[in-house]
Write a protein that binds this DNA or RNA. Structure first.
Lengths: 235, 235
DNA sequence: TCTGCTTTCTAATAATCGTTAGAGTGTGTT
DNA sequence: AACACACTCTAACGATTATTAGAAAGCAGA
């Protein structure tokens, strides 16, 4: 009954395992989440993840060996980007399976943003409708260039660092919904905490653009402003 | 700008990496594919994957630590099963990303079943319609108990080992479509080769039940025949 | 050409993982 | 109770991997 197919089958699964290997390190998962917001240099990735540049480079090499990322050289910098939309949705899928089955993760997530009034992800469509009617104001608190790459419909860009100086743009009479890079990103938590302190009604949306897109909802892609822009996310 | 959130964020990604770790070994991926066909004992998994029972047990422990599988004891045997439908669809997703980006894998896959007349996965719906109208005969060449757990609509169970003795059940005037556990499984390749040798018109469908289900198409779940049956796939 | 900057490559060490063997656990059978 | 069986746990080995430091490669600007 057992066959001569072992070596070939082993070879197939070995290839798939390259993907799994790329997903098996916390820092690499974090890098993938960052790259889902748009292309970034090694330096930038190292800074955002809090690791040494050399180590970031090593992790990126593993991701590249699994063909999950691609590079582009511009002057002295090398920009990494995801090699496709499917990579972003894979990363969302892995996280959702983790949330489903790992109680430790659920506990940590609730501790992180349970008190900040996170929206139930089941009524994303409701939120979209409310935003369309102007009943809530959705703000994107990521850095401006990430908003530029892709953002939720009806969302305004209001990077965390600029909130304090741009409070006049925000309404007191309506609820403000803040989102950032995804459920593990703390930018929106900080924004909500700050806004509440200042008397605004604010809630967090745990989604990032990848989660939103994976849920089958539409994104907005601002017109590319320069020739060097890569709009790989935009199909 | 950089925060005190590192330790918490690291903890979150560490949890997700447990899933990645579980997916980073070829043998574990193969085990997941087998478990997607229904629960199996350690002995059975070791035999099907061609590894030692002790090694299979070790791999299963890793999968269990990532909460991707669960166990049930029945007498002297311990049966493993996937801990949810999402695990099967994750495994499909990982494989599809691998196929998309790893040229080596594509090449190996084509070499494996290019000459066997694999169906284009894009017309799954067509196949379903043809099968409904009786224009093609779909056979499930997996072991009978796997068919019993879940199978494609309109498919007949015809395990590879029984084909030779049950040729009378197959039509000469219509095309036969054989499927098995998935794109990496060789049962359907062998079935197609054998049938063609005998003068039948036969083609392979690369899908298994997980791929079929992940494509949004319906499955059939035969009525459970005994109280010990676990129909975890069947929701 | 020289210098500075970003990133990769190489080498080295500590930590982790895959794999095997042997002992141990829980279960059914005699 | 004694035994056989299926499986897990522990220990140990070599093989990978993570991480760090130092050297080197590629590019821009003077």
């Amino acid at each position: 009954m057992n066959e001569t197919h072992r070596p070939l089958q082993d070879l197939l699964y070995e290839q798939v395992a390259r993907i799994g290997k790329a997903l098996s390190s916390p820092k690499r998962l974090e890098i993938l989440d960052l790259l889902a917001q748009g292309e970034k240099s090694v330096e930038r990735l190292a800074e955002e993840t809090g690791i040494d540049i050399k180590l970031a480079s090593a992790h990126l090499r593993v991701l590249k060996e699994g063909r999950l990322v691609m590079t582009r050289r511009q002057g002295r910098f090398i920009f990494y980007r995801l090699s496709g939309q499917d990579v972003a949705s894979l990363s969302v899928k892995v996280r959702s399976v983790a949330e489903q089955h790992l109680l430790e993760l659920r506990a940590a997530l609730e501790q992180m943003s349970g008190d900040i009034g996170a929206l139930d992800p089941r009524n994303r469509a409701d939120l979209l409708a409310q935003a369309r009617r102007g009943e809530v104001v959705v703000i994107d608190v990521r850095p401006a260039e990430e908003y530029q790459t892709a953002h939720l419909p009806f969302a305004r860009s209001l990077p965390l660092a600029e909130i304090e100086s741009r409070l006049a743009e925000l309404p007191m009479d309506r609820e403000i919904v803040a989102y950032c890079r995804g459920p593990f990103c703390v930018l929106s938590d900080e924004a909500v905490a700050m806004l509440r302190c200042l008397g605004f009604r604010a809630r967090k949306l745990g989604d990032g653009v990848s989660e939103w897109q994976a849920a089958g909802l539409p994104l907005e892609f601002p017109a590319t402003t320069s020739a060097t822009d890569i709009s790989y996310v935009s199909r």
